[in-house]
């Protein structure tokens, strides 16, 4: 009986600790521009499927000017520190890492992909190197947001799309 009680207490403690942590949530730095290529909620849930789909389109079919490219993600979401250094999106507290650490999902993208925008083709207007705060800046998006009404309304399609990708392999 005593053991059961101990177990119960332990579980209670865990739940309590968990809820405390959950209240905090990850602190996610704001990207450039007003909004992402799709709704924030939609992107939070589906960015991985969109990226994986885009990755196969790009590598195998050579379709590069589509909206969900990782280069564009990095271009908007990499922050510049106050000393003008551009921070990696997978650095501690940065856009990708903060959320992924919170969700305990490892990111495999940036062992190969650049985690900061190319210094030579930083086409996003202004001069990011001077250390202007990134959050809430009104820099226009590098690429046109696609007609996403369809996709944003129907997460359902994206799931099917992801399944489609999986089935192909």
């Amino acid at each position: 009986m005593n053991n059961y009680f101990r177990c119960f207490c332990a579980v209670l403690l865990l739940v309590f600790a968990g809820s405390l942590a959950a209240v905090d949530g990850p602190v996610i730095p704001h990207g450039k521009g007003d909004q992402c290529v799709a709704d924030t909620d939609f992107m939070r849930r589906n960015h991985m499927d969109l990226i994986v789909h885009q990755r196969d389109e790009t590598v195998i079919k050579g379709l590069r000017d589509e909206p969900f490219s990782l280069v564009e993600c990095v271009a908007c979401h990499a922050q510049t520190a106050s000393d003008g250094v551009v921070l990696r999106v997978d650095a501690e507290g940065q856009f990708c890492q903060s959320c992924h650490a919170y969700a305990a999902v490892s990111i495999d993208c940036f062992s190969c992909h650049a985690a900061v925008p190319d210094s030579t083709d930083r086409t996003l207007g202004g001069n990011p190197a001077v250390g202007a705060p990134m959050a809430h800046s009104t820099v226009p998006l590098a690429s046109q947001p696609p007609d996403l009404k369809l996709l944003a309304q129907l997460q359902f399609y994206v799931n099917a799309l992801a399944e489609n990708d999986h089935a192909k392999h």
Binding site: E57, K61, G62, L63, E66, P146, D147, Y157, L161, N164
Partner: peptide, 17 residues
């Protein structure tokens, strides 16, 4: 349906390899 939209989304942009 979804594979149809998939094709449509792809076809709307560049031609690729």
């Amino acid at each position: 349906l979804s594979s149809y939209t998939l094709i449509e989304v792809s076809a709307s942009t560049a031609q690729g390899a």
